[in-house]
Computed example of a mutant assay.
Amino acid sequence: MKPLKLCIGIDVSKDTLVCCKGSLDPGNRISFSKPRSFSNDHEGFAQLSGWIKEESCPEIRFVMEATGVYYENLAYWLDSRGSQLSVILPGKIKHYAKSLNIKTKTDTVDARILSRIGLERKLDSWKMPSGAMREIKFLSREYREVKAKLVVSKNQLHAKMHSYGCPPSVEKRLKKQIGLLETQLLEIEAEIRKTVMADNTLYDRINRIVTIPGVGFMTVMSILSETNAFVLVKNAKQLVSYAGLDIQHNRSGLKEGKTKISKRGNSFIRNALYMPALCASKRNPSMKVFYNRLIERKPAKKIGITAVARKLLILIYTLWKNNEEFEPERKRSRQTDDLPTQDEHNVLLQ
């Protein structure tokens, strides 16, 4: 019997692709094939394509888990050939497996779970980032890494300068290292700006967002590159969850556990927002009022900074979506203006 839908679940590792074909027949019955393994390279991709060509089905979808960077080569290869592809976050697959009461975790089991979720649910298709956005993502992550090294080197220099009997050669090398890292930061930022300025539309939209007090060019570029310019973001709630700034409750009966942010999301976005939130809480008039009202209700600065970071993220998304500049006096929706609920006061920042 000809299947109505065919879904290929692919469990990706550094060297191997474990694949399982799942099919849905006209009677809504689901069946799975015996898993096959292929190498995670172009030769393996071609063999996988040949394996799928054996099937005749009007709808074929590939489903894989976002496992670091190892899935990317196959994802780009499939997308370039017009295949329907969905890439799912690991947390979503984990909870789906729990709902099936599956306790075993192997590559073959994971491939079957990915195939099943593709058959049972309507999944969003993966959108390939543009060449410019891919380049900006690499550069913005490198910028954060170099900046972290610079902070470490400066702290080491401070410690050496205040230590007794530290050889001058040690200080000299550290200062040289700091100079090199500072030069690299300038080079990376210049390269990002050059890439952005090549696209006039992108450049204009970014200039509108940086009108937010406390939000700089590199912060905006980090958030845009990590979200692929919000291509798959449907609403602010989804974006907050993707950044790991959503609230995680811990209550049951008489138990009143600790409520905090989930941190189950993109840590690069949270890191990029921390300093802008700190700056906005002091320099941005509307954010300063918002922050001070939070602190008055509960004197915990970390909670206030987290709330400001989340508010900034939603504001950036709103301005990008509407292609607008920041207007301090404009009344915005309740979603971005109102104080958090009592539970949100218990949010903790990484």
Score class of each variant (00 low, 15 high):
residue 223 I to Y: 02
residue 206 I to N: 02
residue 23 S to C: 08
residue 236 A to G: 13
residue 252 S to G: 11
residue 121 R to F: 11
residue 59 E to V: 05
residue 39 S to T: 02
residue 7 C to I: 10
residue 200 N to M: 04
residue 12 V to S: 03
residue 188 I to D: 03
residue 37 S to M: 03
residue 297 R to P: 07
residue 113 I to Q: 07
residue 150 L to H: 11
residue 235 N to W: 08
residue 62 F to C: 02
residue 325 E to Q: 08
residue 244 G to K: 06
residue 269 I to C: 11
residue 225 S to H: 09
residue 29 R to Y: 07
residue 257 G to K: 13
residue 320 W to C: 09
residue 306 T to I: 05
residue 341 T to D: 10
residue 291 Y to A: 03
residue 158 H to G: 04
residue 332 R to G: 02
residue 332 R to E: 05
residue 26 P to L: 06
residue 103 K to V: 10
residue 167 P to E: 04
residue 231 V to N: 04
residue 92 K to T: 08
residue 331 K to N: 01
residue 338 D to A: 13
residue 205 R to Y: 00
residue 276 P to I: 04
residue 276 P to Q: 03
residue 323 N to C: 10
residue 276 P to A: 02
residue 30 I to T: 09
residue 63 V to T: 06
residue 124 D to Q: 15
residue 102 I to Q: 08
residue 338 D to M: 07
residue 206 I to W: 06
residue 205 R to C: 02
residue 12 V to E: 03
residue 111 A to W: 09
residue 152 V to E: 12
residue 62 F to T: 01
residue 167 P to D: 07
residue 308 V to M: 07
residue 102 I to W: 04
residue 247 I to M: 15
residue 96 Y to Q: 09
residue 183 T to R: 07
residue 298 K to I: 08
residue 15 D to F: 08
residue 109 V to W: 02
residue 348 L to R: 11
residue 21 K to A: 12
residue 172 K to F: 13
residue 175 K to Y: 05
residue 161 M to E: 15
residue 152 V to F: 07
residue 350 Q to L: 10
residue 23 S to M: 12
residue 269 I to R: 11
residue 337 D to N: 01
residue 107 D to G: 06
residue 5 K to P: 03
residue 19 C to E: 00
residue 26 P to C: 03
residue 108 T to R: 14
residue 185 L to D: 01
residue 186 L to W: 00
residue 35 P to K: 02
